[in-house]
């Protein structure tokens, strides 16, 4: 199965289609950090929100690059379960690379400042919270991208609709005062937490929420794949 993960990553990188989402990510990050310096926890919280749709799009592209018949050949070789898992893992690895770029980026452009007031968090704590916020976005974004992939929805139009709906929904439903925040992954709530008060129980709650949302959406993806053969 590692072989299939590597083959899919290679296919994704070699087509050059990896460039589009990475470029989009860098442009939004550039705009974000161009506005001025911020403390790490706060900046990374917003960066994770911005990155969520980018990572989902990247996942959709990675899965869609492989022709349908090649996906079936992979399924014949390793079995249905491992074929699906290999796709999700390849997307997860690609997402982690993008996250690493996003975490390094503000340091290159000088977008991060140290603590200013006596009550501010130290840089290591801010970094840890930022890493956590990004890692929380990865499984949710991969799940959404997989659900929007051609293998799951069948047509390109539906895929884009699922992706847009998921991306916009995550922001709109995540605004404070939302009637149904649990319909979306907690990326907005995470940003509010890293920017404000981050109690251990809150972090745990958000982690469980993000993972549960991802599991449900991956379940939807697997169900769609099963129904479509």
């Amino acid at each position: 199965m590692t072989a299939l993960v590597r083959m899919r990553l290679a296919g994704f990188l070699r087509t050059g289609r990896a460039v589009a989402p990475l470029l989009a990510g860098l442009i939004t990050l550039g705009t974000l950090y161009g506005g001025g310096r911020a403390q790490p926890a706060e900046a990374y919280g917003v960066s994770a929100v911005v990155l969520f749709p980018v990572l989902a799009w990247q996942t959709k592209i990675l899965l869609d690059v492989e022709p349908d018949v090649q996906r079936r050949l992979a399924q014949v070789a390793v079995g249905a379960a491992r074929e699906r898992l290999a796709g999700l893992l390849a997307a997860g690895v690609a997402a982690l690379v993008t996250v690493a770029v996003a975490l390094l980026f503000p340091w290159l452009v000088g977008g991060i400042s140290g603590p200013v007031d006596p009550g501010d968090r130290s840089i290591p704590v801010g970094l840890a919270l930022g890493l956590w916020a990004h890692l929380l976005a990865v499984p949710a974004a991969v799940a959404l991208g997989a659900l929007a992939s051609r293998a799951s929805v069948g047509s390109a139009g539906y895929g884009v609709a699922v992706l847009a709906l998921g991306g916009v929904g995550a922001v709109v439903l995540g605004l404070s005062g939302s009637v149904a925040p649990w319909l979306a992954p907690p990326i907005m709530a995470t940003a509010r937490t890293t920017g404000g008060d981050a109690a251990a129980l809150t972090l745990l709650g958000l982690t469980v929420w993000a993972l549960a949302w991802s599991v449900v959406v991956v379940g939807g993806y697997l169900w769609r794949r099963r129904a479509r053969g």
Binding site: A3, M7, P67, V69, R72, L73, A77
Partner: peptide, 24 residues
């Protein structure tokens, strides 16, 4: 499985593709 049409729209050379498939 030999499909009716081989999916040739892939960014690999013949040797790379077959090496990948052998590992898979």
């Amino acid at each position: 499985w030999v499909p009716e049409r081989f999916p040739a729209d892939q960014p690999f050379t013949v040797a790379r593709y077959l090496t990948g498939m052998a590992r898979v």
